[in-house]
Computed example of a mutant assay.
Amino acid sequence: MASVKQFQVTFDCENPERVARFWCEILGYQVPPPPAGFASWSDYEHAQPADRRGAWFSCSDPTGVGPRLFFQRVPEGKVVKNRVHLDVRVGTGLTGAERLAVLTAECARLVALGASIVLVQEADGENESCITLQDVEGNEFCLD
């Protein structure tokens, strides 16, 4: 049996382009070029039927290592906590005050982009520090 080597992470959201561009800023991802025959994503969107404009957007890791992120518009808003979330690994290999300082600095950058803080968990002797945030549409993720 063959094993899966690639996957994408899909977000349900209200405004796919806004959420995608937020995640580009967090992860250093890039928006792919517009589909063939279109000079820009705006041109592509204007060519779509009115009810399909803004229905989806995507971004990818420019190195090809990370998964593609796909954002699709859904009619309902987010109601409860995510069952799956992304851990953004900015403190890997760091401990204690040094780790918390790196997480706090990245948290400040992301809040300036529109994220909101949910919970700051400081190291307790058993677990290292972690900061839980929400993206621009309320999807939880952790700075780890």
Rank of each mutant, 00 (worst) to 15 (best):
G96W: 04
A101N: 05
W56A: 15
C107D: 06
V84F: 14
G77K: 11
V90E: 15
V80L: 09
E25F: 00
D144A: 15
D87W: 12
P32D: 03
P67C: 13
P32G: 08
L69W: 00
C59G: 14
N139C: 03
D144H: 09
E45P: 00
I131S: 03
G93A: 06
E76D: 12
D43I: 11
V74D: 02
V102Y: 00
G64I: 08
G138D: 05
A123Y: 01
R53L: 09
E14A: 15
Q6C: 10
F22M: 04
R53M: 10
A47Y: 09
C142I: 07
T132N: 10
D135F: 00
W56R: 08
V9I: 13
T63K: 09
A2N: 15
V9N: 02
L27M: 07
S129V: 08
C130Q: 11
L133M: 12
Y29E: 13
C24D: 06
L100C: 05
E128T: 08
W56V: 10
V31K: 11
Y44G: 12
T132Y: 14
L143N: 14
E126W: 04
E76P: 01
E45H: 02
P62T: 07
M1C: 11
D43W: 09
K78E: 05
G66K: 06
K78Q: 14
R109A: 13
F141P: 14
V120Y: 05
P35H: 01
T104K: 10
P75G: 13
V136H: 06
E126G: 09
V19W: 00
A2C: 10
R73I: 01
P16S: 06
E17V: 11
E126H: 09
S3G: 12
H46T: 14
P35T: 03
